[in-house]
Amino acid sequence: MMDVASLTSLADSVFFWGAFTFMVAVAIAGLGALRLALKGEAVTSLMGVSALTTAAGVSLYIIQIIFEVEFARDTAIALLVLGAVGTIIFARLFRMEEGE
C-alpha cells in the first residue's frame, strides 16, 4: 500500500515547479518581445506586442492554474484570442495603408 498523500504531494511539487520555471522562461521571452516592441518601425513593434501578448496570456493562465486566481483565466483568454486576431487585423491595415 503506497502513501497517497506523499504521491499527491510529489506530483503537485513537480507540476508547481515545472509551471513556475516555464513562467520565468516566458517572462524572459516577454522582455525580449518588449524590447522589440519599443524599437524599430511599426510592423516590428506590432510583432513585439503580439509576442508580449502571448507571453502575458500564458503567464496569466499558469497563474490561474497554480495559484487558483480565477479572474486571471478570463484575462488570459482575452489576451490570447484578441491579441492574435488584433495582430492580423492591424497587419492587414498596415499593408493597405502603406503598401498597395
Partner: peptide, 11 residues
C-alpha cells in the same frame, strides 16, 4: 504571414 506580408508591402 500577415506580419511578414505587411512588412514586405509597406516598409
Amino acid at each position: 504571414n500577415a506580419l511578414a506580408n505587411a512588412y514586405y508591402y509597406s516598409y
